Simulated scan of single mutants.
Amino acid sequence: MGRTENPVDHSVPSRGELADFLRAERRASGLTYDHLAERTGVSAATLKRAASGRVVPAEHTVVSFLSACASGPAKITLALSMRQRARRDERGGGARVNPLLIFAPYELAVGLVALHKNAGSPSYREMTRRAGGSHLLPLSSISRILNRRTLPVSQQQMAAFIEGCGVRAGTKAHDEWLAAWSRSREIKELRTGDNYVETIEHMMLNMAQEHSSRQGAIRRRLRQVAKSIDSGLVLAAVQAAAPHLIL
């Protein structure tokens, strides 16, 4: 008869919830941790720690654990979502960010940092793996983006970055983030003058028509952007506070 497990640590509730889920799946499978270790190639100690609630296990560990329990794709997807939430909560939570309200480059820079944090702060190597390889998302580029020293240099790199943060291609959220990147490029190229007013008005009309439920917020945000570009007050203030950051 195996030793009784210590109680799950619920000091971080979402982390404890994931541990409870893993333990329930192991019990349902009828396997011991030693049996799981044999099937996964992951040590029994690591598997026990994953189901302790004291740490957020690595994504690979969660997938291996549940695959060995024959839990099925739906439960593995659920567990990975729980892991993402636990990792985010463990690190102090994240700010809500709506890509529909991102226009200026500095807003995109802040938004991408928040997106990464809300995704549970995946490691650079994990992001590269999710994105499809370092040729699409180099580790050095991730570092510079997250330190707000650059923005994705192309739409392809933008797609790779958000996919590295768990935003799946073909989803509404994926399209909204790519649109935010495109808008930030347009705003960056604007200068005071006749063309800038026309571009802002055109952007306002298109956005309001595409997202009718958010017309008010989008219109207010675009007016703020137009005003900041015209006066230069917002950009100047940010640049004075942190000249190395993306503006």
Rank of each mutant, 00 (worst) to 15 (best):
G93Q: 04
G93I: 14
G93C: 07
G94S: 07
G94W: 02
G94Y: 05
G94L: 00
A95F: 00
R96H: 09
R96Q: 03
R96T: 07
R96E: 05
R96N: 01
V97T: 03
V97P: 00
V97N: 00
N98I: 06
N98D: 15
N98P: 04
N98S: 10
P99N: 04
L100F: 03
L100T: 01
L100V: 04
L100Y: 02
L100P: 05
L101T: 08
L101V: 03
L101W: 05
L101I: 05
L101K: 04
I102W: 02
I102N: 09
I102K: 09
I102P: 13
I102Y: 08
F103N: 07
A104N: 10
A104W: 06
A104T: 09
A104G: 09
P105Q: 13
P105I: 14
P105R: 07
P105Y: 09
Y106T: 10
Y106I: 10
Y106W: 14
Y106M: 06
E107V: 11
E107N: 15
E107S: 14
E107R: 15
E107Y: 04
E107W: 13
L108T: 01
L108R: 11
L108N: 08
L108A: 05
A109G: 13
A109W: 14
A109M: 12
V110S: 07
V110G: 06
V110T: 09
V110E: 13
V110L: 06
G111D: 04
G111Q: 13
L112V: 15
L112T: 15
L112P: 11
L112F: 12
L112A: 14
V113D: 10
V113F: 05
V113I: 14
A114E: 14
A114T: 07
A114M: 02
A114N: 10
A114P: 02
L115M: 09
L115I: 05
H116Q: 15
H116V: 08
K117T: 08
K117W: 10
K117C: 07
K117F: 02
N118D: 11
N118H: 08
N118E: 11
N118V: 04
N118R: 13
A119E: 02
A119R: 01
A119D: 03
G120N: 10
G120H: 04
G120M: 01
G120A: 04
G120V: 05
S121Y: 15
S121Q: 14
S121P: 06
S121F: 14
P122Y: 02
P122R: 06
P122C: 01
P122D: 03
P122M: 07
S123L: 15
S123E: 15
Y124P: 05
R125W: 06
R125Q: 14
E126A: 12
E126N: 08
E126Y: 05
E126H: 08
M127Q: 04
M127V: 05
M127H: 03
M127D: 07
M127T: 07
T128Y: 02
T128P: 00
T128E: 11
T128V: 15
R129D: 05
R129Y: 07
R129Q: 12
R129K: 09
R130C: 03
R130I: 02
A131R: 06
A131P: 00
A131T: 10
A131D: 04
G132L: 03
G132M: 00
G132R: 00
G132V: 00
G132F: 01
G132K: 00
G133K: 01
G133R: 00
G133D: 02
G133Q: 00
G133S: 01
G133C: 00
G133T: 00
